[in-house]
Design a protein around this nucleic acid. Structure first.
Lengths: 217, 217
DNA sequence: TTAACGTTGTTATATTTTTCACAGCAAATA
DNA sequence: TATTTGCTGTGAAAAATATAACAACGTTAA
């Protein structure tokens, strides 16, 4: 049972995205160093990652783009469509719905929830809004395993508890709070405030690196 | 020049957030294992990270929350306020503005940009919208070093090039595309589609782990 | 006073992740 | 035919990251 690293998963998802953007009629094959250039990773790392999904390229032509997409998809995607719920139809929720809409055939945001009566039953970004009262019921009915939390920090833990009780196993958490969850639930945190702080910190680092080199040339 | 790892930076930002949420009158000190419980990291790792910022606790009382906040802040924050720009005042942009507003005293989103005439000059989430035509000019005038890109993938590279030409050193990129940037610019990618795919993948993993254990007990 | 306790700071160890380096191979070339 | 070329796949090495382990040390309690 050799588990694959989360970082590799992220990269594989990126490779697939890039490959999907290539017209196979114009370019049926691709070399690891070409993908490296496009993704910013190293060629060796790409070869390693590809190894992990069990696909092999040709030493002469490189990787067949279609075959590689298929291998990655076999590895990453579920055999059938996975249903996803989005909780919190504010600006962020709408943005996610909009970005995501129709992008991944094997993933479908089938329900959105909000406790704002004025939103309930409206269809927003192609998704009908259900009242949060119905959260557990709807999640069970629709067999939803993944939940996206685009709600304020104050309500995040409560909602997390509720979706988990209804059977959700993966949470994408945009609330700037550490969720307390059982070990059989995966949580991916996307803290926007932290992201800005991080970018600002490393921007500063880059600036000081620059002045360092200027001094030493 | 001992550089600190990005992972440690992320954790430090989280520690500070948690510490800021503690009332110092009720709890003036905290032990590494308490922070561990709250953050989900291990106590050893927390002690390590704290070491990196040069703060020391007491073997008896643990860490003084205020002193620790100050040490982390001295380490993470710039001495003066860093100015940040947000480009793309759609749903996502508004969400970021709203989440971020007033959260970090040393970071200020001082300008937002959009090329939709109907938004220009309106004040959205407390920030006046400037036309994208004025991007370079405004960034230089306001001495902005960090840019948040909440725009569609199609325009992301062009905008990135432009903000970099105007002096930006850190980019927080929400567009689902790999930006091509010079080495003296830091890019933090926050790809929402990928985040959903990742959460879905690991949700599935958790489910199969579970059935694995069920079979073997 | 002395011993036991519980925590930090830090060194050592383990683990994970990335990079290097090169054998092996088919095609192109001489 | 023999040689060169330029790729992949992968074992080995290196680098980065996390964990374990424990001395040192006030405090508490006997």
């Amino acid at each position: 049972m050799n588990s694959i690293s989360p970082k590799t998963i992220e990269r594989l998802i990126l490779y697939r995205r890039i490959l999907l953007g290539i017209n196979p009629d114009e370019k049926s094959h691709i070399y690891s160093h070409e993908l490296a250039k496009m993704t910013g990773f190293t060629a060796a790392q790409i070869r390693r990652d590809i190894m992990a999904v069990g696909y092999s390229g040709s030493p002469v032509h490189g990787y067949n783009t279609q075959a590689m997409i298929n291998s990655i998809s076999d590895f990453i995607d579920a055999p059938e469509v996975q249903n996803v719920a989005l909780i919190g139809v504010g600006h962020l929720g709408r943005a996610v719905l909009n970005y995501f809409k129709g992008r991944r055939p094997k993933l479908s945001i089938v329900a959105s929830f909000d406790n704002d009566e004025s939103k309930v039953n409206r269809v927003i970004q192609g998704c009908r809004v259900i009242h949060t009262n119905e959260l557990e019921k709807s999640i069970k009915e629709m067999n939803i395993q993944v939940a996206i939390l685009t709600i304020p920090a104050e309500s995040a833990q409560e909602i997390a508890d509720r979706v988990i009780s209804a059977g959700v196993k993966g949470i994408l958490n945009y609330a700037p709070i550490k969720l307390h969850t059982p070990p059989d639930v995966y949580v991916e945190n996307r803290d926007m405030i932290m992201a800005v702080e991080k970018a600002a910190y490393f921007a500063r680092q880059k600036m000081s690196e620059e002045s360092f080199y200027e001094l030493h040339t």
